[in-house]
């Protein structure tokens, strides 16, 4: 697997050793059950050591893994009968953002998310999950559609950031993001946001205003990338690991800052190790939170959303 990270090496080595022994045992007929059980115990310990106290930088690495499940993978497992819709009706269809409709436990929902690629070709098509303005405008179109038909909106956030290119600027990247913040803050239907991978600055926030905002345990969310911060601070992008250590970008950090409502646990090693169980945790969260939000009258819903945003920040 090319998803192995440095700190995972001992785990992977031991896993393959156990595999070899099992093979040998079945081929040769020698009983190695005791030996294998001892090694399995050891593996559990090593895994706990490796995964339970991940540094911020290790989480950054996990959040960015190509194997990490993307929006469409979660949608497939969580949303029944998903139909994808395309285009912003103004300029183009941006493949870095996907959206459409389906049902969640019988309730019609609109689902929108950043979409990264699963391989190089796919990533070129998806622009590595970095949207242009038309992506944000497509998202807004689908949100307004959800408002009209009184469907709640489920948002998946997973982007390194809004694309920093010439055409993105020409077509108003800043305005597109700003307008989403403006409209999402007063959208007359519930919005639940789940950060599933990278929450890259304004490009993430443009899909990130909601009545509930939660993050997967190993996802990250920050105002600037660790590489960006380290090149500003120390003129050296290779010190990103140090930068990640000071910028407080983990799910737990954001929970402590009251920026998010919940951290959703991932399987040991990361969401990609067990996509089914991660999907089912997300689904449980949605099913638990949505009915309460849908029962609120719209004015209260929007008032609560405003107060949530209103409480962001700290001063003396």
């Amino acid at each position: 697997m090319n998803s192995s990270l440095n700190f995972e090496k001992p785990v992977i080595e031991l896993e393959s050793k156990i595999g070899d022994l099992e093979n040998f045992a079945s081929v040769s007929g020698v009983n190695l059950e005791n030996e294998i059980n001892i090694l399995r115990k050891k593996l559990d310990n090593i895994k706990n050591d490796a995964y339970s106290n991940l540094t911020p930088w290790q989480r950054v690495k996990i959040a960015r893994l190509q194997e990490r499940p993307t929006s469409l993978e979660y949608i497939e497992k969580i949303i029944y009968g998903f139909i994808e819709f395309h285009g912003d009706r103004l300029y183009a269809d941006d493949h870095a953002i996907v959206g459409g409709i389906g049902t969640l436990k019988g309730t019609p929902v609109t689902v929108i998310g950043h979409q990264k690629g699963k391989n190089t070709n796919d990533n070129i098509k998806r622009n590595f999950g970095m949207p242009h303005p038309e992506g944000y405008r497509k998202a807004l179109r689908l949100m307004k559609q959800a408002e009209k038909f009184k469907r709640p909106v489920i948002m998946f956030v997973d982007t390194p950031g809004a694309y920093c290119g010439l055409e993105a600027e020409e077509r108003g990247q800043g305005e597109a993001i700003a307008l989403n913040l403006f409209e999402m803050s007063r959208l007359k239907t519930p919005i639940i946001v789940i950060v599933i991978g990278e929450g890259g600055s304004g490009g993430a926030l443009a899909l990130g205003i909601g009545d509930r905002v939660c993050m997967l345990e190993n996802s990250i969310y920050s105002v600037i990338s660790p590489e960006g911060l380290s090149s500003i601070l120390w003129k050296d992008a290779s010190l990103a690991e140090e930068a990640a250590g000071i910028m407080r970008l983990t799910a737990q950090d954001l929970f402590e800052f009251n920026v998010i409502d919940k951290v959703i646990k991932e399987p040991l090693g990361g969401a990609h190790k067990d996509v089914d169980s991660t999907s089912s945790k997300i689904k449980q969260y949605l099913i638990k939170e949505l009915p309460g939000l849908m029962d609120l009258d719209i004015d209260t819903l929007i008032q609560n959303r405003y107060e949530k945003l209103r409480g962001m920040g700290t001063w003396g």
């Binding site: 700003a178 403006f182 409209e183 926030l205 205003i209 911060l229 910028m247 407080r248 970008l249």
Partner: peptide, 22 residues
């Protein structure tokens, strides 16, 4: 956004935009 205040700076974007929608 001011990087020294991390995610809290980013959230000011949402907060000011929400006030303007009101």
């Amino acid at each position: 956004a001011r990087m020294q205040e991390g995610i809290l700076s980013l959230m000011q974007m949402g907060k000011t935009a929400a006030a303007l929608s009101r």
